[in-house]
Design a protein around this nucleic acid. Structure first.
Length: 308
DNA sequence: CGGCTTTGACCCGCGC
DNA sequence: GCGCGGGTCAAAGCCG
């Protein structure tokens, strides 16, 4: 894309700055999602559904991150991170939950400032490429079988959560299979790629830890589930039930969320409520609070990323 | 034994 | 055009 397209992202995804500042904001009535006060197994969906009606959530637009920016200085001074993590990054403060959606390829990543950590590029690849291939091993399996078309990387709506958690992979009611992990440029924390195990369901999930605030896990959903949550089908959630994104109720709640989006982020000017519906989250996952994970500091945020 | 994770390699898009 | 980085694949290994 041309140079101009990268600039808007800076505004679309002011993650390190604005979003984290939101973490520090504690608007009136913000209760957040506190696992200590929330009922056990309360899901994200339940939480969103319930809390948004009384305006207890703060939303902030940002784009689903593709890479995390990490400011080494920030990591140290804990200034802004303090906003997210309450100073020491572990102290439960404002329950924040952040989320975003994007109907297109991620856009605002450029705004992520880099950490110092740099992943050395593998040089072996070159050798491998040029090395004679015995027909054994992966070479035969790879591109030979899977010629990727150009422009194949079309992506569905994306929806990112920022979650304060000690565990990377939060239970959301669906079953995921990890299919990859990549070291994130300029981040000490790897990014994990998950795919819904359900057949014909091509929902993907990216999980990465914010290097600005290691206690923050960024989960990016991509696509729409074509099935019900196994957890909900099991009767779990007590009425939380099915969380298909097409649920009118869900949309209603989202609309409520949207209002907050426009309210809370209008000053920043990077959230366009009109585009929100186009970028509806593939689902609001029933994110059960893992007993081993601290789900706190929750601030949802939505945005609609710019197109590539 | 089946499902899942790990891990190295490859492909592709984008920026320079 | 080249290099970098993100995203994906699939074999191998692990675990219940």
């Amino acid at each position: 894309m041309s140079g101009e397209s990268s600039e808007p992202y800076r505004h679309d995804f002011p993650f390190h700055d604005d979003l984290f500042s939101v973490f520090s904001q504690k608007p009136d009535g913000l209760q957040g999602f506190d696992p200590q006060t929330a009922p056990p197994f309360m899901s994200f969906g339940d939480y969103l559904h319930g809390s948004t009606t009384d305006g207890s959530l703060v939303v902030q637009g940002f784009d689903a991150p593709r890479s995390q920016p990490c400011d080494p200085v920030v990591g140290g001074d804990g200034g802004k991170n303090a906003a997210a993590g309450g100073g020491d990054g572990m102290t439960p403060v404002t329950p924040n939950f952040s989320a975003s959606s994007s109907s297109t390829e991620a856009a605002g990543d450029e705004d992520w400032r880099p950490c110092k950590v740099d992943q050395p590029k593998q040089e072996v690849q070159e050798e491998e490429k040029h090395a004679p291939q015995d027909g054994e091993g992966r070479d035969k399996t790879k591109k030979a079988n899977k010629p990727r078309k150009k422009g194949e990387r079309q992506r569905g709506p994306r929806f990112a959560f920022m979650t304060k958690s000690e565990v990377d992979h939060l239970e959301d009611g669906y079953r995921w299979r990890k299919y990859g992990q990549k070291a994130v440029k300029n981040s000490p924390y790897p990014r994990s790629y998950y795919r819904c195990t359900a057949q014909k369901c091509n929902v993907k999930k990216r999980v990465e830890r914010s290097c600005q605030d290691p206690t923050t896990v960024i989960t990016t959903y991509e696509g729409q589930h074509t099935h019900h949550s196994p957890a909900s089908l099991r009767g779990g959630g007590g009425g939380g039930g099915h969380m298909l994104s097409t649920s009118p109720t869900t949309n209603l709640r989202r609309s409520l969320l949207l209002q907050q989006v426009s309210r809370s982020s209008s000053s920043a000017g990077y959230t366009n409520p009109n585009t929100y519906h186009a970028g509806l989250p593939p689902l609001l996952p029933q994110l059960h609070v893992p007993d081993h994970g601290l789900l706190q500091d929750i601030v949802p945020s939505f945005t609609h990323g710019s197109q590539r």
